[in-house]
Design a protein around this nucleic acid. Structure first.
Lengths: 145, 145
DNA sequence: ACTAAATAGGATAAAAATATCCGATTAAAT
DNA sequence: ATTTAATCGGATATTTTTATCCTATTTAGT
């Protein structure tokens, strides 16, 4: 409804890796894709992008995998993950796809949608990876069902 | 950010046809695609689906085109247009794509997103084609820029 | 009847998103 | 050093979405 598959997988993977890191475990590709229920090879690409984008750390070689530190999880927000996977996610923000939709040049749903847009942006900017992974860890949230 | 191109075009086309109908004009494909800035042949397919879905009326033959009546515009909501073009739009409603995301089985953003989802649904269900086309007619909204 | 102007509908093409495969590289363990 | 377990990166395949093209059908006007 709002994110592409790539972004869905990317968020879930980040949350899983964060949760495992919180508990001192490093996660590898196979484990990640199993726990978030995503195609392995495709997930590999996404993890690569996340690593390049500074969201997670990748450790190569035997016993390697993906991990990140608690202080990083606190700083990383949902919006950072999204932008690491789709740099111009925030540029196409009009519901009807108008290039220059604005207060003075609104599409027919602009005024009714702007509150929702504002709240969505707020959610993306203020939800940290840490809080999501804590919820996962506590069993208050799930990544597959 | 939320709709596919097909749905974007579909909404704009419906609003344009409605506005023209309000003023007693019937709209044809060429005119519509010019005014909403969409590819003509693709728009033709979408208009067909909208007609089949009972959103607009299509009149075949010379002097034909698309139109609808004021009392219909009042009844037709944004959600009807969306569903006419994508029947299971409302079935994939979890931000992270979980099949059975719910209060008791939430994804990590469920609780923060549910208000937004509720408002979005409210907007879709309560925004009528009539009000959108009135705004367009009054010059308070635009379909291209 | 004929012509012209429309939409309908089927076939196809192009582009983007999703997904897979495989060899190269890295690093730990023996 | 060799083996083994990982990620990296490039090439390719598949699927879905977006877009186009062409013929058939319908209808108004002459």
């Amino acid at each position: 409804m709002i994110f592409s598959k790539a972004i869905e997988y990317g968020i879930k993977a980040s949350v899983y890796v964060a949760k495992q890191s919180m508990n001192g475990y490093r996660s590898n590709l196979k484990e990640i894709s199993e726990h978030i229920n995503s195609p392995e090879a495709f997930t590999a690409k996404i993890l690569q992008q996340l690593a390049k984008g500074g969201i997670i750390h990748s450790i190569k070689g035997a016993g390697g995998g993906f991990a990140l530190e608690i202080k990083e999880m606190k700083k990383i927000k949902l919006v950072d993950i999204v932008l690491a996977l789709d740099a111009d996610f925030l540029n196409s923000t009009c519901v009807l796809g108008l290039k220059h939709c604005s207060e003075t040049n609104p599409c027919p749903v602009h005024h009714k949608y702007k509150h929702i847009k504002r709240e969505t942006l707020h959610l993306l900017r203020n939800t940290s990876l840490l809080e999501m992974s804590i919820n996962l860890d506590k069993g208050l949230a799930y990544l597959r069902n």
